[in-house]
Design a binder for these strands. Structure first.
Lengths: 126, 126
DNA sequence: CGGCATCCACACCGATACTG
DNA sequence: CAGTATCGGTGTGGATGCCG
């Protein structure tokens, strides 16, 4: 009860910190490439080049960047096999798997409403 | 069985079209502001300025832009009341509501793994 | 093969100002 | 109050080349 009671309300401060962190994570995760990478990984472990082939249109740079980001947030695990040529494999961690489930929901939604959206667009563009 | 069988494989073509459309929708929806707007709307209908206050940090321009995009895709409904001063209200459509459910899942995920992610980041940055 | 650095075009986004 | 337009700094992301 006496801990850190001098700098205003500590509980509020903690909440603000958590909020800003949540917002930050949201920005990281809510981006096209991150979502597609997570979807592509699914339950399998894939090599860098396999991911690159799996995700159509992603550039070498974007794949590296997003993989680093996901690794940093603990959503994917990166294992390097010390052989020549190098063999690097990526797989979802448990938090990553959990996220994938919700992303699956997003994919289902997309396919379910594909028609709605297409017609809505045509009506709007007129 | 005999319909549109002359231009290669029509089924494949349709699938490719659906895929590219799905990808497009994915890009539209998987962005920070769109998700935050949908979350803010929830079950209520809000005015432009109310949305602006609700979503911390969004600019006038971004709000307008994303609202147009969401309207075009049929996820939000825009109703203009012909009074002075103008009164414009936004609400989620049924597809929008469905999407919101999955986004709620994303929010839950974020809060559940906040700790995991924070510690993972510190370990990575070292 | 996978990763990093560099360069550069372009899209994004905020600020500002003007309309109905 | 809500929307549109314009301008300009900044960040994003593709292409390329070089390392281990």
């Amino acid at each position: 009860m006496v801990t850190k009671q001098f700098t205003g309300s500590p509980d509020e401060a903690d909440l603000r910190r958590a909020d800003s962190l949540a917002r930050e994570i949201f920005s990281d995760v809510a981006n096209k490439w991150a979502l597609l990478i997570i979807e592509a990984l699914g339950e399998q472990t894939l090599r860098f080049s396999e991911l690159r082939n799996e995700i159509e249109g992603i550039s070498h740079k974007m794949l590296t960047q997003n993989l680093r980001m996901l690794e940093r947030n603990g959503l994917v695990e990166r294992t390097v096999h010390p052989v020549v040529p190098p063999r690097v494999e990526y797989a979802l961690t448990e938090p990553g798997q959990a996220l994938r489930v919700t992303i699956d929901g997003l994919c289902d939604w997309t396919h379910r409403y594909l028609g709605h959206i297409e017609t809505s667009r045509h009506r709007f563009d007129a």
